[in-house]
């Protein structure tokens, strides 16, 4: 198998490498890729949308349909993780109950009629080995960093029209702050800030903001996602309406990405139980 794979890869790779001879030189301004469609974007993006960041314009206007499905892919991944892993079977079977050792977060299952083990018993000694002492360095650092990171992510979102940035990046940074909270404290703390239900609903709402903007354009009589028609609603001319709509759409993307990142982390880190975490 290994040899076969090697031969296959070498053969196909050789074929592709030989063929690379016919590709244009690196950075050639006259290559078809830089002369056919892209000059149109570069020349007209600002005029059409009054937004200097061409990547944002192409992302959220010219090819907004792609971007919407990109958000949908993220949403589908969130659903996939939830669907495959989440289990709530514990604690519902009756008869037994659970004792949670708060400092370590270890949960002990106590069978029907059973008693809690004694203070110095073997069970607790094995739990004590897992106990993590309060770690001031990590917790304090994260507590100081998280607000700044969150503000930064909002900046990345709001300034996406003028500088590198936009919905996906902002969403990832925002999601990272909540994951950071979960890592530095524990899953319970972050679940208290953002429950699973919130994450799920936010991710759906985020994608819905995007898709709904498109649907609104359709209902107002234009093509799907043609923001032009929103001009009277946004109290602006057509170009500015596009600019504003790009922001609206990016807000939706931010919400979706942030919520899905957090949701996937919740499910992956606790193997779907969402009682422990890292």
């Amino acid at each position: 198998m290994k040899k076969l794979a090697l031969i296959l890869c070498l053969f196909a790779g050789g074929l592709l490498l030989m063929n690379a001879h016919y590709l244009p030189m690196w950075g050639d301004p006259a290559s078809p890729a830089s002369t056919h469609v892209s000059p149109y974007f570069i020349e007209n993006a600002y005029e059409h949308t009054k937004t200097p960041n061409m990547v944002a314009v192409v992302l959220a206007d010219y090819r907004s349909y792609d971007t919407m499905f990109e958000a949908a892919v993220v949403l589908a991944a969130g659903f996939a993780c939830f669907f495959l892993l989440r289990s709530r079977a514990r604690g519902k079977k009756g008869g037994h109950h659970y004792y949670r050792h708060i400092p370590t977060g270890v949960t002990i299952k106590i069978e029907e009629g059973g008693k809690l083990p004694a203070e110095n018993s073997k069970v607790f000694r094995s739990i004590d080995a897992l106990w993590t002492p309060y770690d001031p360095i990590i917790q304090t650092t994260c507590r100081c960093l998280i607000p700044f990171l969150q503000i930064y992510s909002l900046y990345v979102l709001a300034h996406g029209h003028y500088s590198p940035g936009g919905g996906f990046q902002a969403g990832v940074v925002l999601g990272a702050t909540i994951i950071l909270l979960a890592i530095s404290h524990n899953l319970k703390t972050s679940l208290k800030r953002m429950s699973e239900r919130t994450a799920a609903l936010w991710s759906i709402i985020g994608v819905f903001i995007f898709a709904g903007t498109g649907l609104l354009c359709l209902l107002l009589g234009m093509d799907y996602l043609n923001y032009e028609v929103l001009a009277p609603l946004l109290l602006s001319d057509e170009a500015m309406a596009r600019s504003h709509s790009i922001l609206i759409v990016e807000v939706g993307v931010t919400m979706a990405v942030m919520a899905v990142m957090v949701w996937i982390y919740y499910n992956l880190s606790s193997a779907g139980q969402q009682d422990e975490g890292l």
Partner: peptide, 23 residues
């Protein structure tokens, strides 16, 4: 600007695939 946009999409798809694969 076009390949940047396309690859932003591809990166997101890759991340989503990674999430499902790990699951």
């Amino acid at each position: 600007p076009l390949p940047h946009v396309l690859m932003l999409t591809a990166i997101v798809v890759a991340v989503a695939t990674l999430g499902v694969a790990l699951t």
